[in-house]
C-alpha cells in the first residue's frame, strides 16, 4: 500500500527547489458508534487493521503525507461515536480542514445518522473552507449491504460533497482516499490565504524519529 505514498526522507533532498513546506491540516472523523472511524484512522496512520474497542472521548493521531510540492501533516481527531460524547464533538470539528462523515454500509441507521452529522456540519461551515467527504465504510460486508452505492452518492452530490466507499478492514480505497484528501485540501483550502498554517520546520528531525518509532505520538504545540 505504501508505494502510493511517496516517502520523501526530508526536504533537503529537494535541494534544487526551495525547501518543501510542511502544512498542518486538521482532520476530523465523525459518525455513529461502530462504523469504523478508528479503524479508518488507523489505516491512515499505520495502514493496519486491528479490531478496536469503542473510542473513549477522542483519539488524536498524526500522519504525514508528502505531495510533490508540499508536505501535509494531517492531525486526525478520531471522535467517539457514542451519544454521550456528542456534546463535545464541536470542539473537534471546529476549524477542521477536512471532515469525514462515516457510515456503515451494512447498517441503515448509521446512514441516517450521517445525514444528521452533515446537517450539523453545514450549519458551521462556509463552502470551500473545509473539505467534506462522505464515506461508506465496510465494503467487506457487501453481502449485508443496506445502503446502496447510489444512495450514498446521491446524498453526497445533494450536499455537494465527495463520496467514497472504503473498507478499513481490507484496506480497500483507504490509501487512495488519504491521497485524494491531501490533494483536495492542499488545492482547495491550502491555496487560500491563511488556509493552512505552517508546521514548525525545526521539529522535522524529531518528526522522522517519530515516524520510524511511533508515528502516533506527537508533540505539537499550538502555533508555529
Amino acid at each position: 500500500m505504501g508505494e502510493n505514498l511517496p516517502r520523501v526522507p526530508g526536504a533537503q533532498l529537494h535541494s534544487s527547489h526551495s525547501p518543501i513546506r510542511t502544512l498542518r491540516a486538521k482532520m476530523v472523523l465523525l459518525g455513529s458508534s461502530g462504523v469504523g472511524k478508528s479503524s479508518l484512522a488507523l489505516r491512515f496512520v499505520k495502514d493496519e487493521f486491528k479490531s478496536a474497542s469503542p473510542t473513549v472521548g477522542c483519539a488524536y493521531l498524526t500522519r504525514v503525507v508528502h505531495l510533490s510540492d508540499v508536505t501535509l501533516r494531517f492531525e486526525i481527531w478520531d471522535t467517539a461515536g457514542q451519544e454521550k460524547y456528542h456534546s463535545i464533538t464541536p470542539l473537534y470539528y471546529r476549524g477542521a480542514h477536512v471532515a469525514l462523515v462515516v457510515y456503515d454500509i451494512s447498517k441503515r441507521e448509521t446512514f441516517a445518522r450521517a445525514q444528521m452529522w452533515l446537517n450539523e456540519l453545514q450549519k458551521q461551515y462556509i463552502q470551500g473552507s473545509t473539505v467534506m467527504w462522505l464515506i461508506g465504510n465496510k465494503t467487506d460486508l457487501n453481502q449485508e449491504r443496506q445502503v446502496s452505492v447510489q444512495e450514498g452518492r446521491a446524498l453526497a452530490s445533494d450536499k455537494g460533497l465527495l463520496f467514497t466507499e472504503t473498507s478499513a478492514l481490507s484496506g480497500n480505497q483507504t490509501t487512495e482516499l488519504l491521497l485524494a484528501l491531501a490533494h483536495r485540501v492542499y488545492e482547495g483550502v491550502g491555496a487560500q490565504q491563511g488556509g493552512l498554517s505552517e508546521w514548525s520546520v525545526t521539529a522535522q528531525a524529531e518528526l522522522h524519529h517519530r515516524e520510524r518509532f511511533n508515528p502516533v505520538a506527537s508533540c505539537c504545540k499550538v502555533g508555529p
Binding site: S38, S53, P54, T55, G57, C58, A59, Y60, A80, Y85
Partner: peptide, 18 residues
C-alpha cells in the same frame, strides 16, 4: 478500569472528559 478496559488509547493519544 477505564485504561485497562479500552484498547483505544493504544493508537494515538486519548483525550476524554472524565
Amino acid at each position: 478500569n477505564l485504561v485497562g478496559s479500552s484498547s483505544s488509547f493504544r493508537e494515538g493519544e486519548g483525550w476524554t472528559p472524565i
